[in-house]
Design a protein around this nucleic acid. Structure first.
Length: 822
RNA sequence: GCGGCGGUGGCGGAAUGGUAGACGCGGCGGCCUCAAAAGCCGCUGGGCGAAAGCUCGUGAGGGUUCGAGUCCCUCCCGCCGUACCA
């Protein structure tokens, strides 16, 4: 090898060469025509093009590309597309600051992403590429909006909305975190505005139930379940006789109705002031409500906040026992959930208990853990009814619950009910850089859909991007003023744009038929690819994007546009790349760009390292030393490929080995094929151990290279290249060509020869009382008796048997013998 | 509070109930070299021991088992999500 010592692994020469081949030959383009191979759709979440790609992108696309390559070489017809989620606030905020049109900033960023994806060697079908900001795409976003509108799934109504005072737009519930805007971090205000919504709540049950049909990580399913927040219980009507008004409450525990000792309404409840009017409480209530509404969501929601509230000076009648119980207003009751009013059962609810204690209200136990038990209150666990009613006392509470609800139902005072935490999806945004809502308003006809042949409603240019409490589009009078499609009379365009999550809720469908200009997709084409077989992205989208995309898919299924009713059959959520244990951020100054490593070590090193660093679903800390190690490994593989020269690279057959080195190395190669195939299969994503298996193969080849025959060394080099191809496609292509003259991506995924996975001998572990006392070489086909005898013959085993009585012997063929002594 | 994930050498991490620490980083030693870099080869959990070997060791404590990082129970710690949801 001395003459090769000076040879240097030069990714800068290797990588562009192969990228050129793939581009010239359109290698990764895939037809929509069925050719007998199984269709397989692998997709990574599309990037938001802002600035340059970061490490999270590198990880995301390195993961997806490995899946795509492995699937292709396993005989599948693979769809692996790319696009850009290009509408959104960062580009617009930049426009406000610099005056640069968001389209220009976005185009510059997209160009950078395109260039780097090519430099990374990601195997993308570029013929299907688009940005969601292009009219040829958002034309169909608008079309889909109108399909939902026609079916009542998109509607406009006035209601309380979250207003972000910094972004100057409304936000969806999903975009408000701890009472603050997701992007701005500003405390959101509640405003009454007329806004567009999607009726996602119609799908609550299916979104919940169908989680059982898809292969997603449990924690993501759990987050979606919690977000939908389905609770089974009852609606029960309490009557206020003075005003003659009925108030319904939602409760999950109608079995505790006999323990209700007061009734509480939210400060936002529309009837609170009217109820208190004319009572001695009128002023106190007005005061309390005013203060409660001023308080921020954050302060109000504070975990251990004392329970405040004031009496309304009125009472309601408990329908189960006719008892009049006092009414209160208190801010621990939320208007957004249930009916904004609750029955309070202090003996069996912690919050009610706390309130009753502070305000000196009666606490009546109606469930006991066992008959006659002395329970500490509040008791939320199941038990038997007490102090309730002769019909129910002594009954298990779950049984009593059903009977009480049935009884109330008969009386017309209650019924079974299911309540959800999920709210309809608010999609209006008072911002410029988004998809215009294709609606016009006519004095005569109200909100009218823009006719489909007039789509897209193109986003006009504006000079001032700054939102001023209304969309910047509202200032473009010549665009706003239009005619009504119904009557031809004067009409005005909707000036709000859509939430960008609308754009990204259907992009995976457009990829299947991206150049279709008569429909968003052809149903037969979409059906041939959908659902996405493997979706890959960050867990930060567990609720928003992943829930919205599921809703859209189900709605389109119902409309008849699609067979699939789930978008992503399998989901993999990748962990974050950190630096010095912390999330990379500009403020911490610990951001490192992929380009720095790609330029210095090559894309293959960067891609391999990011997959080698640890299990991909976990967070991982970037280390420059680790990068060097992976680079050394690829260089060793590359040098091996040079050294072995070009020629046949077939595996020798068992028994045909010229020497021990050939046997050892051939077996190692087959072991590596088996290991890597297993680690890549069945959505295991064990890429870190797959790469280390190839490292082991290369290490073995170096150890054996003085004695192994050239053909076997070549087989080892070719196998190593073949196996590392999904992670380091350029180096793999180079090494494979150097060794065999063939193209690795045109070569089927290798299969391990089962005969090579077993050796003639194995290392037998000899244990005494479970402790290893010796290691012996044993024939692979030895009988249990032979193995036991062999183990007993080992001197160090005998030393530990000395003077003891053997009570049992465990023999695990191919592994160990354990002799149990006393 | 609740839900989820995790805790293994100096570090990142491997281990279908069967040799704990694969692979990589770092460290040590050797070869090559005038010297270095690069490369190549080897060693590398702790303690005792000249060695053979013995012994301890996967957050803590129990249990099941011939055998536990892995399964069960009780705790402790960390991270993520979520939270007055009736």
């Amino acid at each position: 090898m001395s003459d090769l010592r000076e040879l240097r692994y030069e990714p800068k020469a290797i990588e562009p060469k192969w990228q050129q081949v793939w581009a010239d030959e359109h290698t990764w383009e895939v037809s929509n025509e069925d050719d007998g191979r199984e269709a397989y759709y692998v997709l990574e979440m599309l990037p938001y093009p802002s600035g340059e790609p970061h490490m999270g992108h590198l990880k995301n696309y390195a993961l997806g590309d490995a899946v795509a390559h492995f699937s292709r070489r396993s005989g599948k017809r693979v769809l692996h597309p790319m696009g850009y989620d290009a509408f959104g606030l960062p580009a617009e905020n930049n426009a406000i600051k610099t005056g640069v049109h968001p389209r220009d900033a976005t185009a510059a960023s997209i160009a950078s992403f395109q260039r780097q994806f090519r430099e990374w060697g990601i195997s993308i079908d570029w013929t299907r590429e688009f940005g969601t900001h292009e009219p040829r795409y958002y034309r169909w976003t608008q079309w889909l909006f109108l399909q939902l509108f026609k079916r009542g799934l998109a509607y406009k109504r006035e209601g309380s909305v979250n207003w972000d005072p910094v972004e100057e737009t409304v936000l969806a519930n999903e975009q408000v975190i701890d009472g603050r805007g997701e992007r701005s971090g500003a405390l959101v205000e509640i405003r009454q505005l007329e806004q567009w919504y999607f009726r996602i709540t119609d799908y609550a049950d299916r979104l919940l139930d169908d989680l059982d049909k898809i292969q997603w990580p449990d924690h993501v399913k759990t987050m979606q379940r919690n977000w939908i927040g389905r609770s089974v219980g009852a609606h029960v009507t309490f009557r206020n006789e003075e005003l003659g008004k009925d108030y319904e409450v939602f409760t999950t525990r109608p079995d505790t109705l006999f323990g209700a000792t007061f009734f509480v309404m939210s400060p936002e409840h529309p009837d609170v002031l009217a109820l208190a009017e004319g009572t001695s409480q009128e002023e106190a209530v007005r005061d309390y409500v005013r203060r409660a509404l001023l308080e921020s969501n954050e302060d109000r929601g504070a975990a251990d906040k004392a329970k405040t509230g004031v009496p309304l000076g009125r009472s309601v009648v408990n329908p189960v026992n006719g008892e009049a119980i006092p009414m209160y207003v208190a801010d621990y009751v939320l208007m957004e959930y249930g009916t904004g009013a609750i029955m309070a059962v202090p003996a069996h609810d912690e919050r009610d208990f706390e309130f009753a204690t502070v305000h000196g209200l009666p606490i009546r136990q109606v469930i006991a853990s066992a008959p006659g038990a002395e329970d500490e209150l509040p008791l939320s666990a199941d038990g038997v009814l007490v102090n309730s009613d002769a019909r129910f006392d002594g009954k298990p509470n779950r049984e009593a619950l059903e009977q009480i609800v049935a009884w109330l139902d008969g009386e017309g005072r209650g019924r079974r009910a299911i309540n959800y935490r999920l709210r309809d999806w608010l999609v209006s945004r008072q911002r410029y850089w988004g998809c215009p809502i294709p609606i016009v308003y006519c004095e005569q006809h109200g909100a009218v859909a823009v006719p489909e042949d007039q789509l897209p409603v193109e986003l006009p240019d504006v000079t001032d991007y700054k939102p001023r409490g209304r969309s910047p589009l509202a200032a473009v009078e010549e665009w706003v003023a239009t005619t009504c499609p119904e009557c031809g009379g004067p009409a005005r365009r909707e000036t709000d744009t859509m939430d960008t999550f609308v754009d990204s809720s259907w992009y995976f469908l457009r990829y299947t038929d991206a150049s279709n200009d008569t429909a968003p997709w052809d149903r037969a084409v979409a059906d041939s690819w959908m659902p996405v077989d493997q979706y890959i992205g960050g867990v930060e989208h567990a609720i928003l994007h992943l829930l919205y995309a599921r809703f859209f898919t189900k709605a389109f299924h119902d409309i008849g546009l699609l067979s699939a009713d789930e978008p992503f059959q399998a989901l993999f959520t990748q962990g974050m790349i950190t630096r010095d244990g912390a999330k990379m951020s500009k403020s911490k100054g610990n951001v490192i760009a992929p380009s720095a490593y790609v330029d210095r070590y090559g894309a293959d090193t960067a891609r391999c390292y990011i997959l080698f660093i640890g299990p991909p679903d976990q967070d991982a800390d970037w280390s420059d030393e680790g990068v060097e190690g992976v680079h050394r490994f690829l260089a060793r593989l590359w040098r091996l490929g040079i050294e072995v020269g070009r020629g046949p690279a077939d595996s020798p057959h068992a028994g045909d080995f010229a020497n021990d080195a050939d046997a050892v190395l051939t077996r190692k190669a087959h072991w590596a094929i088996d290991k890597v195939t297993h680690d890549l299969g069945d959505r295991r994503f064990a890429f870190n151990t797959a790469i280390s298996a190839v490292m082991e193969l290369v290490n073995e080849a170096y150890r054996q290279r003085e004695s192994a025959s050239p053909e076997v060394l070549r087989f080892a080099a070719a196998t190593g290249a073949s196996l590392i191809f999904p992670f380091a496609p350029h180096t793999a292509s180079e090494v494979y060509e150097n060794a065999t003259g063939a193209r690795v991506w045109e070569t089927p995924w290798p299969a391990a020869d089962p005969a090579m996975l077993v050796a003639d001998t194995f290392e037998l572990v000899a244990q005494v009382n479970g402790k290893v006392r010796d290691r012996l070489t044993a024939p692979a086909d030895a009988s249990r008796e032979d193995l036991e005898a062999l183990a007993r013959s080992a001197p160090n085993v005998q030393a530990h048997l000395e003077g003891r009585q053997v009570v049992k012997v465990i023999v695990v063929p191919g592994k160990l013998v354990n002799i149990v002594v006393r």
